[in-house]
Design a protein around this nucleic acid. Structure first.
Length: 185
DNA sequence: TGGATGATCGCA
DNA sequence: GCGATCATCCAG
């Protein structure tokens, strides 16, 4: 079942765990790739010091304050992109960072984009999955229901999903908050 | 463990 | 303008 945009119009900390187990589909360069979401992190609004939305809207973080159910893609460390899903109702900032996928369809082209790493390393990091799926800045702002100029969408899982919560990775501010969600067996 | 590599943002 | 910082990745 396709996830509607309204799925994202909720508190970020509720959306994040609900995304675990969902399948992300990306149509790019005439190819369709998909992967199961297995790790995410929540980033909140101005009250979350680790969030790009801390300190109010900026040219980069503007999308986080806009309507939910869109992609927030940013460039970091001079060489990587990260994919987020915008949450909360319009005017309130929030996003979920997609940190890892289990690759499903399109592994051939993902391997090609990733330079022939083993399948287990294709999408096991936020920068890696963007490289595998061919996601760059041009995907920023794309709706998550496949209605944009570049198509991506999600399907919900029917399975019961187990997960654990841990602190977020690679941040220095608000590092103690348990806003990371990992799918467990 | 540190280097690559460039956009971003606060402060001057 | 300037520079510290950065939601990363990979080689060694």
């Amino acid at each position: 079942m396709r996830l509607p945009v309204s799925f994202f119009q909720r508190p970020t900390l509720e959306v994040a765990p609900d995304l675990l187990g969902a399948t992300l589909f990306v149509e790019n360069e005439g190819r369709k790739c998909s992967g199961r979401i297995v790790e995410v992190e929540a980033y909140l609004g101005p009250d979350d010091p680790a969030s790009h939305a801390a300190g109010g809207p900026t040219p980069r973080s503007r999308i986080m304050f806009g309507p939910p159910g869109r992609a927030y893609v940013y460039f970091i460390y001079g060489m990587h992109h990260c994919l987020n899903f915008v949450t909360e109702k319009e005017g309130r900032a929030g996003a979920v960072l997609i940190r890892a996928l289990e690759p499903l369809d399109g592994r051939e082209i993902m391997r090609k984009r990733r330079g022939g790493v083993p399948d287990g390393r294709l999408c096991d990091g936020p920068g890696k999955l963007c490289q595998a799926l061919g996601i760059g800045r041009e995907w920023n702002g794309m709706p998550l229901d496949g209605t944009g100029a570049l198509r991506l969408y999600l399907e919900k899982t029917a399975e019961k999903v187990h997960f654990e919560r841990t602190p977020r990775i690679g941040i220095s501010k608000a590092a103690a908050r348990p806003y990371r969600f990992i799918r467990t067996p």
